[in-house]
Amino acid sequence: MEEQKNSSLAEPWHRKEMFEPLHGKAESRIDAILLLIREASTNLPGDVISSLSVQKTKESDGSQAQRALGIILENIEMAYDAKTPICQDTGTNIFHVHYPIGTSTITLRNEITQAVRRATELGYLRPNSVDSITGKNSGDNTGIGLPSLYFHEWENEHLEIKLMLKGGGCENVGTQYALPDSRLGAGRDLAGVKKVVLDAVLQAQGKGCSPGILGVGIGGDRVSGALLAKEQLFRKLEDQSPDPMLAEAEAEMLEKSNQLGIGPMGFGGATTLLSVKMAKMHRIPASYFVSTSYMCWASRRKTLVFNNDNTYIIE
């Protein structure tokens, strides 16, 4: 029985090269950013692949849930081999940039934008930017506010760019609650937070391409809380919150979410979420927001480290 499970469909963790960081020396910073986009779109992070592989063995044999995870794993391998997008919805292109003192963010903005245009021409990204009123597609993933860029100066000498490709299906099921929530009987405490988190998973059903990863931002205002929730999706799956109370809540919420039985694609099954990631920030006394950001199984996040001598590592 066990043997049959292990031999069925694709097992990408036999493909060690998919898990190894990519490094080398780039002709230019734009080239390195282009590689970052290609890697994000076509090669899923190793921890996500491993988690999906493990979960496949936990679904019952012959179930639609197991079949779905098998196809997902096969798809991950196919996309890696062909250097084509894992998912056709290459989503919002979200770049978090840490730059050394003295680096121009205007130049970086231009270079990232050029790399995005080039990645679209090469088919690593789908033309995904439309005018909100006319619906006209810009054709190259640029537009007002796109790509989505966040700049932070730091004291290190190297440049770091984190990229997340966030598809629309999962972005659309993200939520924000204001506690207290009388419908759910959720008060202004950690128990209340847990209640709304579970409700967010319930409301998402399979629509965010489960099994997903739930980022939770506790506190802040409506903007900062939502951003905090989304930033949690950059964390590796095995990462636990440094706050013991939140680390415990993360584990509890993962277990309870999977007891909902929504399963992969909403077909029913044991795997509704792969992980829950929580973080808190201060708030003003009058506001108590709980923001959630749902990431689909195709959790496309990669980090580029770029040095002054043009050497780079992408993982």
Binding site: I71, N75, A79, A82, P85, Q88, P127, G135, N137, C209
Partner: peptide, 28 residues
Amino acid sequence: HAIGGAAAYTAKSIRKVHGNFKPEFGTP
């Protein structure tokens, strides 16, 4: 129901593209 996100897997079943209607709507 197809498998959400399984873009390369699904594309494998597409043998040929016989053109389109309303290309002005944009590729997607």
